[in-house]
Write a protein that binds this DNA or RNA. Structure first.
Lengths: 193, 193, 193, 193
DNA sequence: CATGAATGAGTGTTCATTCAT
DNA sequence: GATGAATGAACACTCATTCAT
């Protein structure tokens, strides 16, 4: 296993633990142990617990951005893109709840952590945000969506998905979150019109 | 100043500090000091730091619930209610950013904290959630909104507002958040239709 | 026991332990334990292990300075003052070897530690150095000593005493260091002439 | 480069780093890196960081002893030998401050380090001490110096030089330390008389 | 009611040393 | 010979909580 793969393993385990117990309640020792690594060796991969948190954010948003990028490349209507993205997101949420939870738990909660030493957290999530922008603009160009302030449109997509994610985290939703897919994507599309 | 008032003072200061520095980076000593109270005395009001966090959530959602309750009582269309709620929320966000930030920072991030000893965080926010439900149902009854799964409708309202709140926290929005009001409420209304 | 007295107790114990085991090999926990105090409480007295080291230097040099000050005030020849100072120093060395050892071990060895945040170690020992200067100048004025570069004269006094202290630390001297007193003070006086 | 030469290279670099940052603040990894050697390989030369410290002490005192040995061999008065030794020492101090600093910083400060496993530090510096003894005894024989307890005479020479070295380390002396040479050697000679 | 001294378990991080390659 | 990945004990420092006064 090469260094990069080990790094992923650490991130994946961290994502899982951070999302379950929170950033501050997860210790470096626990993370290291969870993948059978010594504390000292952990620090050969990440110079600090904080830097692991940052790398994890980038990792998650990169994954989401990749999914969305594939959809953006397709030659289909923007409405369908939204629909596919919702499906893809819910699927991701079902399979990797810890990644999404991590975003909520660690990123939203500890913004001060990410905004020190220059790079704002916004920066870390840039890849994903850029793809959202592409999606919105293509819809506006094709007249499917109405031109609005970017931040409003951004909120319509990520906010509605964020809402359902929050509820999922609360454990009140039906186990099969896919049943919400159609209503959700319809609502998002309407919101953008 | 009676006991209840003191309690509010603690909550208000905690809200401010938690939202700025996060829950784990704010110490009980700091909170106590900020209102000129001794650490020991603090524990006469709240049995633990955790319980203060819970009381603070209830405090914030109660405030939001009250605002929404007033709007729900009015004899106007649901669409107008949404519009008024958005205005009211943005106003609240502008005047009490720490309260909203608190919700994001502490509640979302530390759900494990709230879900121990029985009461889920959802429980704590019940008053607010109930009012949202009333708002949605009245709209469905008046045929202004389309009947959807409650959780989807809930996500449309709180998610979109949550999205703009997130962006506000990132510091990317125009200082006067009210300029987003109309587009936001229009989007929400459409999403609910 | 008031706060100041507790501080002294910490310093005295630290002086003892630092001088026996060195600064880096003595832990805060050990110091705290040695005086029956918890680690946490230690930090109510000194904000850091480093600051304790600094306070200890000041403590020791202040003691030495006080001794020398008393001698400087006497209406006797400078030669006699040197003699008295040597006696007083050897007595101090015999009764408080840890204080002198501390100076050697921690101060000389970790100058980088003391020179950060502005105050050079030299500054910390100022009281003592000033008294040495007074002693030298009074001897020059009374023509008992020859005028030399201050630093050379300073080295003659403190160096020779330092030398014997070093040897004492090596454990090669006779237990009763006072037997060296006369030869030492004669040598110092001659060196200054 | 043969093994012995590598060893010297390690010692020289260690001397430099230890003297600048102290023994405990210099890591084996840093020393190894500074001479382009791997950590593991370092341990093929020295079985421990401690043993490097010891070898370094021997290295430095051997150098000083060699200088002094040459002077002791000369057919000149003891007074002149002292004078030459002071010049030689100050020159050494100017050119190799790290070596002298090392003695102060590491040896004096961490005597406990050197005195474990039998050999006292005094032992390590034996070659140098022996030469000092020869110098003193030759002066006593030629009646230039007065017979005193060896340790007192030893303190007069090494103490006064130690004093000026301390001040040099404090950065208070004139850059050209040679200007103190005459006064220093005169003082030492007088102290020995 | 009110104080703040006191506790001590717990945290992130470091680093001498080992050893498989 | 030479590497550097890997270990894990150890450390300075923090902070929620308690309790004597």
């Amino acid at each position: 296993m090469d260094k990069k793969q080990r790094e992923y393993k650490i991130i994946e385990s961290a994502l899982d633990m951070f999302s379950r117990k929170g950033f501050y309640s997860t210790t470096v020792a626990q993370i290291a142990k969870s993948i059978g690594m010594s504390v000292g060796h952990f620090y050969n991969f990440f110079p600090s617990k904080n830097s692991l948190a940052k790398a994890s954010i980038t990792f998650v948003t990169k994954k989401l951005a990749d999914e969305l990028h594939k959809i953006n490349e397709l030659n289909i209507s923007s409405k369908d893109k939204i629909h596919m993205f919702v499906l893809s997101y819910l699927d991701f949420l079902e399979k990797n709840p810890q990644m999404i939870d991590y975003f909520f738990k660690v990123y939203l909660a500890n913004r001060e952590m990410f905004s020190q030493d220059g790079d704002s957290g916004f920066e870390l999530a840039k890849a994903f945000i850029d793809e959202i922008e592409i999606l919105i603009n293509s819809g506006i160009e094709s007249k499917e969506f109405c031109k609005k302030d970017f931040y409003v449109s951004f909120s319509c997509i990520t906010g509605i998905l964020g809402g359902i994610t929050f509820l999922n985290g609360e454990g009140v939703l039906n186990k099969d979150v896919n049943i919400y897919a159609k209503e959700l994507s319809d609502s998002i599309v309407k919101a953008l019109q």
